[in-house]
């Protein structure tokens, strides 16, 4: 057996990251929760979880000195990174939530759901919805088209093209629910709460 990979789960003070930590423990890896740039340096892979407000999240990343470290590891050292929910949103260029710039790794912006029938489409979208796969990302290996995942969000990606889109979902209308650009992966849904299918996705990320 080789040494387990070091998975850094980035703690930037946004919401409950312990579920993510506990589920990654179930994969063949060694997760640690990191809050500083120094702790992040040794990571083989990075998970960027998070729930909450986009602008506050960017502010916290900046303040903790994590922004430069993340850019270096992801853009230059090409370490695989998985953004979950708010974590995926942060990878975009801009969000309507607070009107602030994101990490800018993916050519997309984040906008609020524009729902017409609000009686049957409550915001935040809360619960299980299916994903339609686009292309053949290793992140979604052994996961069926139309597989169901747990979602909890009020904002979503909007991109000029589907170049980096690996899955979409319908909530009144179709929107982007997972992305990949080289070593950068993001899911709008929560694999850590999505039963066996979610665990499969986390295992896929570990296996990259």
């Amino acid at each position: 057996m080789s040494t387990p990979q070091k998975i850094a789960i980035v703690n930037y003070g946004m919401g409950n990251i312990h579920t993510v930590y506990k589920k990654i423990q179930q994969t063949n890896s060694a997760p640690t929760i990191v809050s500083t740039a120094e702790e992040l340096l040794n990571a083989d892979k990075i998970v960027l979880p998070g729930v909450g407000h986009f602008a506050k999240a960017m502010e916290n990343l900046q303040r903790n000195g994590l922004l430069d470290a993340l850019n270096d590891l992801v853009l230059h050292k090409k370490k695989p990174v998985l953004g979950i929910c708010l974590g995926m949103q942060l990878m975009s260029k801009f969000s309507e939530e607070g009107d602030v710039e994101g990490l800018g790794w993916i050519d997309a912006k984040v906008m609020r759901f524009q729902i017409k029938d609000q009686l049957t489409h409550k915001i935040p979208q809360t619960g299980w919805n299916s994903i339609q796969k686009h292309g053949d990302s290793p992140l979604l290996k052994k996961i069926d088209d139309n597989a169901e995942f747990y979602f909890l969000h009020s904002y979503h990606y909007h991109a000029p093209s589907y170049t980096n889109v690996i899955a979409s979902t319908v909530f009144e209308y179709e929107y982007i629910s997972a992305v990949q650009k080289e070593n950068i992966f993001g899911t709008q849904f929560h694999p850590e709460k999505s039963h066996d299918t979610g665990l499969q996705l986390l295992n896929n990320f570990i296996a990259l």
Binding site: H121, G127, N129, V170, F171
Partner: peptide, 8 residues
């Protein structure tokens, strides 16, 4: 589409 949840 979003499914209705059954919660024990």
């Amino acid at each position: 589409m979003l499914t209705k949840r059954i919660i024990p």
